[in-house]
Amino acid sequence: MSAESWNDNDSAATGGKGGSDPLRGGRRRSAPRASGGSRPGRNRSVGSRRVRGVSDLAGQIVGQAASILEEELAAGIGAAREIEDRFVDVESIRATDPNRVVQRLRKDAHDVVDIIVDLVDVAITSTGAIGGRAVAVTMRAPEDNGGAAREEAGPQVPALVIPEPVHVGESATTSLVVENNRSTPTAPLEFACSELVNVRGHRIPSGAVSFRPSQVVVGPESSVRVTVMIQVPADADPGLYSGLLQAGGLEHVRAVLSFEVVAGATPPMATSPAAPAASEGSVPEQSGDDFPPSGADSPA
């Protein structure tokens, strides 16, 4: 059907009164046609009338759509500003240390995403965990000032914390990210962990910690995620354990691994199979049974 016949239908459907077309929502831009009497161009050729009809309809549709878009964008921008106002001074936060922004993101992520679904509480429970696990371990070239790098690295050793307690005899998985900011790939890196010690001096041997992949080469200006698996011995003493993770040959690439060991068996819901292996480029599973978490955040 041509646009012209739509206009003709208009006239018929409105009883030939030629008033504003209700379908246009009162925004009709071209003058309505009267069903009788003279009107300019009435003796035009059929072809030119058809072209004119299409052009009129196109102008109406596109103009109408553009007006709606502008209205909704104006309303949306206002609403977006309201939301930003809830997040204190977002602009100043953006301008500061990226780590502060990350912390802010973790804190405010709930407010942002709860608009998506009510169940977002569940996800936000793990927001901090993910941020914590995505530890940025910056590679530095060996030919750089090694002493300075080590000095700088000292107080900035990232913490790799497993947020959920691990029961004796069970395993947990977390991950870290090794970033290479250089324009050349790294040498093959192998990871190792020291003995883990709790506050009472009890130890978990270093062999309880393994890495997948066991060896990585990080390409230029890219990153690799390494999965860290901990198998807590059945006879381990409860308490908070810590140990030092290092990349072989690059002692400034390191992180402190911490987790709490608790006695007793995991409740039935938590005895699901160990978390799956994390594929590169994906966010690996949190230890044990983190989804959905037990407790008040679980949906009824």
Binding site: A109, A123, G131, A134, E179, S223, S282, V283
Partner: peptide
């Protein structure tokens, strides 16, 4: 939400 958070790294 999780892949959006993974953008961080």
């Amino acid at each position: 939400i999780r892949p959006l958070m993974a953008n961080l790294t």
